[in-house]
Design a binder for these strands. Structure first.
Lengths: 204, 204
DNA sequence: ACCTGAACACCGTTCAAGT
DNA sequence: ACCTGAACACCGTTCAAGT
């Protein structure tokens, strides 16, 4: 029996759109991405197979909504991490760690966020905007570090892309188990990557 | 009518395993990853729906074989690029460019190589080995640069992971269209990433 | 050994219909 | 407006059978 106030129960399943998203997230986390079907989501939400079409144009729209939710929550985690740092450089490291931690805590969602099903953003304007916000967030952080004299000059947008690329690549290789044989922990790899990004590989 | 010598035609479709791989690659490139089904591959190869099961245990095995083929061809391209450089540093840049170019020339295959369907390498020992060879290749290149005094000390395996992560992340963000708004070409972004990897972001 | 046809349990999506 | 049931064209996989 739903406990929500009547005003938010526009039909007898409460907020069905949210219920479908919750069901999708549960299936994704517990049963894996290959089980994430519109029919399974409908079953878990307790409605007929065709009910989701009232809220999502097609399967891709549901996946996009899940991806967008992931970007949103990851952005929140990064924001919280940024506020915790005592110095700008510590803040950047905290943000990097928050990013990597989010991906490893919710690997299935992270994969969906960057997966092939939503890689073509045509018709997914909201998702494009939310994903772009992550880059904007990193760009603002880079800009702040430049103003503080902690990193050198250069187009902050390009530097931000390189920073994001490093984090994203590290996460993907790690999730794919492709860093398992280097004899270094996840934190050690983040550390090494941060060191290279700050000081470079060239001898000083 | 197949023109191969009789010795290689173990059955009337020639080398059916290879024919199925070719069909899969064609479908992947032309119709996209969502059309890559065992049945479609069989149809295109002109055999019954169940014939592929003589050569691939299941759909995942076919996808893994396609991914492995991709890793193999990408490794070849990197090897060729490495030999072309006049100096070690130019060679590294050439390898980076070859990597990024391969991914953009065969985006569907690249996505499959790092996609969720084969991310769990359990039971895919050959794929794990071929993927690991890419890391070994980068590690050897880093080691060579260290010996030549062109990059500083440090565990070459960890430095290689960071280098690969940067390339992989750049490729994925670019393929996802998430670098479209920074006003920089693909080459410019590779250039910027290479600069940061070599000299770092910190002011000198 | 290699391939086929029928069958089962799924799936996305559409359509007419119910309240 | 919101939801359902039936239907269509797919899919992965198994099984008995054919040469």
């Amino acid at each position: 029996v739903p406990k929500k106030p009547a005003a938010s129960r526009s039909y007898h399943h409460g907020d069905l759109r949210q219920a479908l998203l919750d069901a999708g997230l549960w299936i994704l986390r517990v049963e894996g991405p290959q089980s994430l079907s519109l029919r399974a989501v409908a079953r878990r939400a307790g409605v007929s197979q065709t009910a989701p079409y009232r809220h999502f144009a097609d399967r891709r729209a549901l996946v996009a909504a899940i991806a967008q939710d992931g970007f949103s929550r990851m952005g929140d985690a990064m924001q919280r991490a940024a506020q915790g740092g005592e110095t700008p450089r510590l803040a950047l490291k905290n943000v990097a760690r928050a990013y990597v931690d989010f991906a490893h805590e919710y690997p299935a969602e992270y994969r969906v966020m960057f997966g092939p099903e939503v890689s073509d953003k045509d018709g997914l304007d909201d998702l494009r905007a939310t994903g772009g916000a992550v880059l904007g967030f990193v760009t603002a952080a880079i800009d702040g570090l430049q103003r503080g004299g902690l990193i050198g000059p250069g187009d902050p947008a390009r530097i931000a892309v390189a920073t994001w690329a490093m984090l994203h690549g590290l996460v993907m290789l790690s999730l794919d188990g492709q860093t398992a044989n280097v004899g270094a922990s996840r934190d050690e790899l983040v550390e090494e990557a941060t060191r290279i990004m700050m000081f470079g590989m060239a001898p000083r």
